[in-house]
Amino acid sequence: MSDLEEKIAKWLNTNTFHHSEFWDLKELVRAKEKAGVSISLCIPTLNEENTIGKEIIVFKSELMDRYPLLDEIAVIDSGSTDRTLEIAASYGADTYLSADILPNHGFKPGKGENLWKAIYQLKGDIICYVDADIKNIHSKFASALVAPLIYRQEIQYVKAFYDRPLAVSNELRASGGGRVTEILVRPLFSVFFPELTALMQPLSGEYAVRREVLEALPFPIGYGVETSHLIDVYQAYGLQSFAQVDLDKRVHRNQSTASLGKMAFGILQSFLNRLKGYDLVTDMPEMNGIFRQLLAEGRRYEQRVLSIEEEERPPMITLPEYRERHGR
C-alpha cells in the first residue's frame, strides 16, 4: 500500500462516520452546550415549494423544539417565483431574499451567492448548509453533519454522503458519487489533489463548517462552490480537517444530462481557476466562459451557446460590514 493509500485508509477509519453514531441527540445537545457553540442551519432556495415545508417542519420540530441543537433556521432565496418563501415562513423559518442581504454588494444569481450571504446574515459559530430538494428529509441531515464539529475540535468541514446502490455485488459498495463526481471531479482530484479522492461525494450540497473557516473562503457563486471549498480548505488545513458522514439515502429530483453538462462546465472553470491560483499549472489559456452544446432533431442540427461565468465573491472577512456585524 502506498503512503497515499495508507493515509486515505487511516482517514477513512478516523474521519468517516455513519449517522447512527450520532443517534443520541440529547447527548449531542449536551456536548454542544459544553462546547459553547451556536449553530445555524441555512437552506438556499430557488422555487422549492414542493419540498421546503417538510424540511422546515422536520428540522424545527426535531432540532429546535425537541432537542435544541439549532439556534436558527434560515431560508435564503434567490428570487423564487413560486410559494417557497411563504411556505417556509408559515412553518417558522426565518426567510431572506438574497438580494436584500448586503445590498451595496449587489445580487448575483446562483446558489453560491446565497451560501456566501448566509455567512453575513446568520449568527452561528457553525453553519450547516442543506439543499432544499430532499424528498426523504430527516433530522440527521443536519444533526449528523454538525456532530463531528461538536465532538472533534480539529475538524473544520464536514461533508455528507449517501445513496446506496440498488444492488451490491461485492462486500464493498461503490462510493455512490453522482455522475459529475465520477466522470469529472474524481478524475481531476486523482491527478491534482489525490488525497481529496477520499471524499465519497465532494459535490453533495449538505455540509457543516466552522465560521472562521467559511469567512476566509472566496465563494464562486455558481456550480463550482463546493469543489473550490474543498480545494481551499485542503490547501489551508489539510485532509485531517475534513470529515464525512454517511446519511444512507437521499431522494431528490434527477437532473438531465444537459443540466449536468452545464454543472460540469461551471465546476471545471472553478477548478482551473484554483489550479492557476495555487500555481499548479502554468501557461493556461484565457477561459471564455462559453459552454457549447449541440442539439440534433432528425437531420436538423442546432448549436446552443450558453454563457456560464463562474464569478467569485471575496472572502467574507474582507468586508467591513461583516467585520462590524460579527465583531471580527
Binding site: I57, V58, K60, S61, E62, D65, R66, Y91
Partner: peptide
C-alpha cells in the same frame, strides 16, 4: 404551541 412537533410526527408517521 406544539404545532411543529405534531406536524413533524405526522410527516414521519406518513412516510
Amino acid at each position: 404551541s406544539i404545532r411543529e412537533i405534531l406536524l413533524a410526527n405526522i410527516v414521519m408517521a406518513a412516510e
